[in-house]
Amino acid sequence: MDEKVALPSMWQAFTKEGREQEEGVASIAENLKLLEAELEGKKFLGGEEIGIPDFALGWLVNLVPVFEEILGLKIVDEERHPSLSEWSRRISDIPVIEESWPPRDKLVTKWAAIRDHFLATARASSG
């Protein structure tokens, strides 16, 4: 599920521009429908208790808002993804997880620099 939901489409949306980025965002939207359906009626991916699938996808909770800020677009919203939004809040509210995340401002700075590097490299190789 992690590979399907996150890796290729999220990376494409984050490191590309124009049409390629739009394709990545469209792919993310389709993949998030799968995750939303999987979470419907459950607290966590495995049911009532947090488990390995939640930890495998837990990075979404922390990084998606960072990517949204950098890209200036909304990837996960409560209207389209009510179960995913609630799951994200549950994950975020677990003290040991919340205390382990790096400061958001540092994540934004780091990931913005990574994106800038990829975009600059792509522009240099195409021009």
Rank of each mutant, 00 (worst) to 15 (best):
D2R: 15
D2M: 11
A6Q: 06
A6E: 04
L7C: 14
L7F: 12
L7E: 13
P8N: 06
A13R: 00
F14S: 01
T15F: 12
T15D: 06
K16Y: 07
K16M: 11
E17R: 09
R19K: 15
E20G: 04
Q21H: 06
E22V: 08
G24H: 02
A26T: 09
S27N: 12
S27K: 13
I28N: 00
A29W: 04
A29S: 14
N31Y: 04
L35Y: 00
L35K: 01
L35I: 04
A37C: 08
A37T: 11
E38A: 13
L39D: 00
E40G: 09
K42G: 05
L45Q: 03
G46H: 05
G46S: 13
G47V: 06
E49N: 15
G51Q: 05
I52N: 10
I52F: 14
P53T: 03
P53Q: 02
D54K: 00
F55N: 05
A56G: 07
G58R: 00
V61D: 00
N62F: 14
N62D: 11
V64F: 06
V64C: 04
E68D: 07
E68R: 06
I70P: 01
L71C: 07
G72Q: 10
L73T: 14
I75A: 03
V76P: 00
E78C: 08
E78V: 12
E79T: 14
E79R: 12
R80N: 14
R80S: 10
R80I: 05
S83N: 14
S83R: 07
S85Q: 07
S85C: 11
S85A: 11
W87D: 00
S88W: 01
S88A: 15
I91P: 00
I91L: 09
D93M: 12
D93G: 12
I94P: 00
I94G: 00
P95W: 10
I97A: 03
I97N: 03
E98Q: 15
E98M: 13
E98W: 08
E98T: 10
W101R: 08
P103I: 04
P103V: 07
R104W: 02
K106S: 11
T109L: 12
K110F: 15
W111P: 01
W111G: 02
A113I: 08
I114R: 15
D116N: 14
H117G: 14
L119K: 03
A122R: 09
R123S: 13
A124W: 02
S125W: 06
S125Q: 14
S126E: 12
S126F: 04
G127D: 10
G127K: 13
